[in-house]
C-alpha cells in the first residue's frame, strides 16, 4: 500500500464526507427545530436523485444545473409534507413520530419501486471520468464538484441561520417552541420551512451524487443510515457537529475500505455509531439533547 493510495483514499473520503455532511445537516436541522428524527430523509434524497436522473436523460439537463429546478421543488415538497404528515404528530409521543416518518419512508421507497422498478440506473456525464490533479493525487471531478457544492450550501445555510430574521426565528423555535410562539413567531410555518430546507439539503446532496452514484429506490437508505451515524456522532441538532461528523465518517469509511474489502467497511461505521451512542449519546460536539 503506497502513500499515494492512502492519500487518494483520504481525499475521496473527505469529498464523500462533504456529501454526508450535507445529508446530515438536513437531518439535524429538522431534528433541532422539531425534535423529530426523520426516517424518510433517505427517501427524499432518492426522489431527488430520480428527478435529477430523469431531467438529465429526458431534457438533457446537466445534473449540477438541474439543482436550480430540484432545490425549489424539494423545498416545496418538504414544506407540504411537514404540513400534511409531520404537523399532526408534533405533540404526539415520540414513538408515534418515529412511526410516522417510517411509514412515510415505506410509502415513498415502495412508490419508487413500483414506478421505477428495482433496476439501478447510472448516469454518465461527459466529465464522469475527468480528474483534477492535486499534489500527488488525482481527484474525480464530479466528486470534487459535489464536495464544493456541499460546502457552499452549508456555508449559505449557516449565513442564513445566523444573519436573517427567518434564520433567527428558526433558531428561536428550536430552542423554545412555546416561547417563540409567544413572541409572535409563526412556529407552525417555521417548522414547515425547516422541513423544506432540510429536504432541499438532502435533495442537493442526492442531485450532486448522481454523476458518480447509482440511482435505485433504496439508494437513499445507504446514505441515510450513514447520516444517522453522522448526526449522532456530531450531536443531534448540532450544525458544526454534522459537518465534522460527516467528514469524519467519510474518511473512516474510505480508509476502512482499504483494509476491509467490500461492504465490510460499513461495520466500522456502525461500530463507531454504537460506541458513540453509548459513550457520548449527546455527540462529540453537541451537549444539549442527550
Amino acid at each position: 500500500m503506497t502513500a499515494e493510495v492512502v492519500l487518494s483514499s483520504l481525499a475521496n473520503g473527505i469529498m464523500l464526507g462533504g456529501l454526508y455532511a450535507l445529508v446530515a445537516l438536513g437531518l439535524t436541522l429538522i431534528f433541532g427545530v422539531m425534535k423529530v428524527i426523520n426516517f424518510a430523509h433517505g427517501s427524499l434524497m432518492m426522489l431527488a436523485m430520480y428527478a435529477t436522473f430523469w431531467l438529465a436523460t429526458t431534457a438533457g439537463l446537466d445534473p449540477y444545473l438541474s439543482l436550480l429546478l430540484t432545490l425549489p421543488a424539494a423545498f416545496a415538497f418538504g414544506y407540504a409534507i411537514q404540513r400534511a404528515v409531520i404537523a399532526p404528530v408534533l405533540r404526539a409521543p415520540e414513538h408515534n413520530q418515529l412511526l410516522m416518518t417510517l411509514g412515510l419512508a415505506l410509502f415513498l421507497d415502495n412508490l419508487a419501486l413500483v414506478v421505477f422498478t428495482a433496476d439501478p440506473r447510472t448516469l454518465l456525464v461527459a466529465y464522469s471520468q475527468t480528474t483534477v490533479p492535486l499534489g500527488p493525487v488525482r481527484l474525480n471531478l464530479p466528486r470534487l464538484l459535489a464536495f464544493g457544492g456541499a460546502l457552499l450550501i452549508s456555508g449559505l445555510l449557516w449565513l442564513f441561520l445566523k444573519t436573517t430574521d427567518l434564520g433567527r426565528a428558526l433558531r428561536a423555535s428550536s430552542e423554545e417552541r412555546d416561547g417563540a410562539a409567544l413572541c409572535g413567531i409563526p412556529v407552525g410555518r417555521v417548522h414547515a420551512m425547516a422541513f423544506g430546507i432540510g429536504t432541499a439539503c438532502v435533495a442537493a446532496a442526492g442531485g450532486m451524487a448522481v454523476p458518480f452514484f447509482y440511482v435505485s429506490p433504496e439508494v437513499g437508505n445507504t446514505f441515510v443510515i450513514t447520516a444517522f451515524v453522522v448526526v449522532v456522532l456530531g450531536g443531534l441538532g448540532s450544525f458544526p457537529g454534522a459537518l465534522v461528523g460527516g467528514l469524519l465518517v467519510g474518511v473512516v469509511e474510505s480508509l476502512g475500505g482499504l483494509i476491509f474489502h467490500g461492504s465490510l467497511a460499513q461495520i466500522g461505521i456502525f461500530a463507531l455509531f454504537v460506541a458513540v451512542l453509548l459513550v457520548r449519546p449527546a455527540g462529540l460536539l453537541g451537549a444539549r439533547h442527550a
Binding site: 404528515v85 404528530v89 417510517l102 411509514g103 415505506l106 415502495n110 419501486l113 413500483v114
Partner: peptide, 17 residues
C-alpha cells in the same frame, strides 16, 4: 412489486393519526 409495502406505509401513517 412493492405495492404491499406502499400500502403498509399508508396504513402505518393512518394508524399513527
Amino acid at each position: 412489486a412493492g405495492l404491499h409495502l406502499m400500502l403498509y406505509g399508508v396504513i402505518l401513517m393512518g394508524a399513527v393519526v
